[in-house]
Write a protein that binds this DNA or RNA. Structure first.
Length: 215
DNA sequence: AACTCGGGGCA
DNA sequence: TGCCCAGAGTT
């Protein structure tokens, strides 16, 4: 047809093709489990979180279970994730709030989720998009870096990045787009020494073209 | 805007 | 041994 695809469309199409099988890498079978796994994932990797939750969720996997846990008991399971005292405290407090305020069900709006202790915008959006199939794009360090490099966004903060991504990515692809960006960020578009030479997007990447011009 | 929480993985 | 890692809360 006559109309040429713009760069954003091209980028999304390549990402989709390249990361067709990308899924949420965290272990979970319920919204609550995803919430806990995502809370644990701060400043660590999915491998570490999965190692911890694989054992943890066999014993405890509902807000009712977690709200009764002793801090020390929970810390024992999640110590390998790091920042474990804060995380244990927040997880237990969040579980109490879910039971008392939301009838034991994880709330499914951004406003409610970010009121849970230890839950910020990123964690809330992961739960919304992955557990509840809501229209949301979670922006973590990978998404922020990669989308800015590619030119899908051009922003200094998370809020702005979310808005720009929602504008530049077709709605029906929002739920998967952040997985594609995260996987790309880990495999190729790393913070340091990105593997631009083998990147399937380098020919339309803003960052790569800037680098080339400066050399 | 800077500071703090933090054990594990990997060079 | 040193550096980094799917953030969030406090000051």
């Amino acid at each position: 047809m006559g109309e040429r695809m713009n760069n954003n469309e091209k980028i999304i199409n390549i990402l989709e093709k390249e990361y067709k099988d990308a899924r949420c890498a965290l272990n979970f079978t319920t919204p609550f489990e995803l919430l806990i796994a995502t809370m644990l994932s701060a400043q660590t990797t999915d491998l570490t979180v999965n190692k911890a939750t694989e054992i943890l969720f066999k014993k405890y996997n509902t807000p009712e279970d977690f709200r009764r846990l002793d801090n020390k008991e929970l810390e024992k399971y999640i110590k390998i994730c790091g920042l474990y005292k804060t995380k244990a405290k927040n997880i237990i407090e969040a579980s109490k709030k879910i039971v008392t305020d939301y009838d034991g069900k994880v709330p499914s709006t951004l406003e409610e989720l970010i009121k849970l202790p230890g839950v910020g915008r990123k964690t809330a959006n992961v739960v919304l998009s992955n557990a509840f199939n809501k229209d949301a794009i979670a922006v973590d360090t990978h998404v922020y870096r990669v989308s800015n490099r590619l030119g899908l966004s051009n922003s200094k903060d998370v809020n702005e990045t979310e808005e720009q991504l929602m504008k530049n990515i077709p709605k029906e692809k929002w739920s998967n787009a952040h997985h594609w960006l995260i996987w790309h960020g880990r495999k190729i578009c790393s913070a340091k020494n990105p593997k631009c030479s083998i990147c399937p997007l380098n020919h339309i990447c803003k960052y790569y073209n800037e680098i080339k011009e400066n050399n």
